[in-house]
Simulated assay, not measured.
Amino acid sequence: MDFMKLLTPRPGLRVLITGGASGIGLAIAKAFVSTGARVHVCDVDAKAIDAASTVSPAISGTRADVANKDDVKRVFEDVRRELGGLDVLINNAGIAGPTGGIDAIDSGEWEQTIDVNLNSQYYFSREAVPMLREATDGGVIVFMSSVAGRLGYGFRTPYAATKWAVVGLAKSLAIELGPDNIRVNAVQPGIVKGPRMEGVIAARAKQLGIPYEEMEKQYLAKISLRRMVTQEEVAASVLYLSSPAGSAISGQALSVCGNVETL
């Protein structure tokens, strides 16, 4: 048996990645392109999409607000035109949401976090499923949750609530869509090295009134491996779930976090 072939998604996969023009999403896009996939990304940042499209001619893009149902429909019009179908949906788009006590969080920020982190994943899944049913080797959906989707996260309640909900959505859709040969899983990144995490740490440090460096040390002390994970490590887990090696895996929440012990 050729195990290396099993570990690589088949060339020619048609992949849609939400929030795919930067950060983890772009790392996932690059990973799929390296295997011969054709990738369409959507992102709220038009400049980021332009930059992503220069990475490879195999990447196309649509500027869209993932929480806007009309924008979502427009994304799928572009997917049909650019890719001619869909094999893999990566529901990656998300925001950090506000930092603060439950009695201090603005209701508008709460609702925005729900809209972007949870409702958008429903909108995209709803549009994608009819296309994924037609995928030659079966369809794949990967929801991007978080380690905050398996642990409590004080002062980040909107974010944690959505990431727990995403796991429930993934596990439920795995049951619902399994008979259609569509596999559904969630990935739970931990503390991912990059500008977004730096912003989260800075906001928490400000909330607690301590220096950034001290806050960062506290975050790392909660990780068994005592380091942040990289975007590429998260992307590799998505490739695995989309490869023949992951063909029997569905309904799972895979933590890629170095074993975050507590938040």
Rank of each mutant, 00 (worst) to 15 (best):
E198M: 11
A58V: 03
R38Y: 13
N119H: 13
A64L: 13
S56G: 00
W110K: 04
Q218K: 14
V55N: 01
G36D: 06
S247W: 12
A37G: 02
E109N: 13
V129E: 02
K73I: 08
D45P: 05
L7A: 15
E214P: 00
G23V: 03
I59V: 13
G25F: 09
V140N: 15
V140G: 06
G138R: 00
F3N: 10
A37K: 01
A221W: 06
R38P: 00
K171V: 03
M1S: 11
L173F: 15
E176K: 10
D65A: 09
Q218C: 01
P9Y: 11
P98K: 11
V229N: 07
P189T: 14
G246T: 05
G194W: 04
L263D: 15
A221D: 15
W110G: 04
A174G: 02
G101W: 10
E134M: 10
R227V: 04
V200E: 12
A235H: 06
R204F: 12
A128W: 01
Y212N: 03
V79G: 07
N117K: 05
I175W: 11
I28W: 05
G108C: 06
S243Q: 08
G178F: 11
S145M: 04
M228E: 14
G36Q: 02
T136R: 14
G251D: 06
V55S: 00
D87E: 12
S60W: 01
R204Y: 10
G85Y: 10
T136M: 07
C257R: 03
K73R: 15
T113R: 00
L26T: 01
E261Q: 15
R227I: 04
S237F: 11
C257N: 15
S120R: 09
A253N: 10
N259S: 13
P57H: 08
Q252I: 15
V129T: 13
R63M: 10
S22L: 04
R133C: 12
A174D: 01
M131V: 00
V66P: 00
D180K: 12
A235E: 08
R227A: 10
V79Q: 04
S242D: 03
L86A: 09
V79H: 07
P195Q: 10
V75H: 07
A29L: 04
K163R: 09
G190Q: 02
A48E: 02
R133H: 06
A67N: 07
P195Y: 02
L7W: 11
G101K: 13
V75E: 06
G61F: 12
W164S: 00
G101V: 02
E127N: 05
L173V: 07
P244V: 04
A245G: 08
S22H: 14
T62M: 02
L26N: 07
S146D: 12
V229F: 05
S60L: 03
K47F: 06
A253S: 14
R126Q: 14
A64S: 14
A27P: 08
L208W: 15
R227M: 06
P244E: 07
E77P: 01
F76K: 07
Q121D: 06
T62D: 05
A31N: 05
F143K: 07
G36T: 02
N91I: 10
K206R: 13
E198F: 11
F124M: 06
S22Y: 01
L225F: 14
S172M: 06
T230Y: 09
A96W: 03
V140P: 00
A37L: 00
Q121L: 14
G199P: 02
P189K: 12
T35E: 05
Q121A: 13
E82W: 02
D50F: 08
